[in-house]
Design a binder for these strands. Structure first.
Lengths: 218, 218
DNA sequence: GTCTATAGATAGATAGAC
DNA sequence: GTCTATCTATCTATAGAC
């Protein structure tokens, strides 16, 4: 029983259509087309629901052209997930570096970056998070390290806000999970035609985050 | 290249280990064992990453015993997803029915139910949401209807809170997405040994939800 | 209902011509 | 680097004995 073709199935995993990659990271030529095709298919059907043939076909290539550029399907997924996490971490880091040095401004900047990244690169974000479990342990390890570093950025800001008496948080870990989690879900429902820009969504969620940590006016 | 065995891969998609089902919904005998085994495997490896053989083996049955109880692998997934959504909706409805009739109490009750459900049945919640896209359109339609009804419960409470001047929300849809999304992510990190009970987590997230809608003291 | 055996399709991956 | 052909393993699902 063949899997339904993408266009015959009206309910999709993610609202976004385009597979935008961060500027400058997409490889040139067939390797780049394969990477982009894989990103779209992994986002829609998952890693396990996508065959190498599907990817090559969507990339306009022959059924095994992928193997001229990647050792395996898993290596394609690993590159996508790596690119996604690197872009996400870069945005968080840049946001922190340019924010005013008080916890409220830093929290706002982090959440805006987190959410905007999930809007601008929603397919990348979904695949990077939802398909991470499909990677072998050794390919996942460096990714998990980077994830922990990104999480650390937010934890540190929350803890400093509490220490300075600016934040009123009943539980640091719970606040971290709530703020991080509400931003991660954005990748599933955001699409450019939804009536909001990524900046607007980031602004709303930054306000929600400030409220979660007990800062009502910022 | 065979997929790595579950126990050889230390990074899992979800923290929880047990595949608890709501009381009274698990079928008796082999059909129930197959359903539970499928739930665990779908939660860990995804629908596309799990074979019928895997399910039967985990259920202690022969490789094709599944077909004596279900017409196809997709029907097993459909039953799991249906049970998950029904339990979730039942909890939300019961929470609303027993809550005091003011928007703040109703919001608190809804979020507690939403979060506790994602703690108590985390595998069910993850599979019900993350694998919904693997269902064909016709099998997904009734589920999507139920999802919309559950979402409607929360929207109505938020809108009534705004109308009564109790809530201060910059954007209803954004608040809905934030509150719903932070609760959905709970299923990925909650586990019984994490130091918090589902009631405690529900309490923290209800507080966060109240703060998101601008209610600081409740 | 459960077993063995297996059909028929498709998966990931490789070899060698060009 | 791309194409054709293909290997081997595995997949979903079925048939028929017990």
């Amino acid at each position: 029983m063949a899997r339904a073709a993408p266009e015959s199935n009206p309910h999709r995993r993610i609202a976004a259509i385009s597979a935008a990659m961060p500027p400058g990271v997409t490889p040139k030529g067939a390797r780049g087309r394969i990477l982009n095709a894989a990103l779209c298919l992994f986002a829609d059907h998952g890693y396990g629901g996508t065959s190498v043939r599907d990817i090559c076909s969507a990339a306009g290539a022959q059924p095994t052209t992928l193997y001229a550029h990647y050792p395996s399907k898993e290596h394609v997924l690993a590159e996508i997930i790596r690119l996604g996490h690197e872009e996400h971490h870069r945005r968080l880091r840049d946001a922190l570096l340019t924010a005013q040095p008080d916890p409220t401004q830093q929290l706002s900047a982090l959440v805006r970056a987190h959410v905007q990244s999930h809007c601008d690169y929603s397919m990348l974000a979904v695949v990077a998070t939802a398909e991470l479990h499909a990677l072998s342990a050794e390919m996942a390890t460096p990714i998990l390290t980077l994830r922990a570093q990104s999480e650390r950025l937010l934890i540190d800001v929350i803890e400093r806000g509490i220490e300075q008496g600016v934040f009123n948080v009943p539980d640091t870990v719970m606040a971290l999970r709530a703020i991080g989690g509400m931003g991660m879900r954005v990748a599933y429902w955001y699409e450019p035609g939804c009536g909001r820009t990524p900046e607007e969504v980031g602004g709303f969620f930054a306000e929600f985050a400030r409220r979660i940590v007990g800062v009502m006016n910022a």
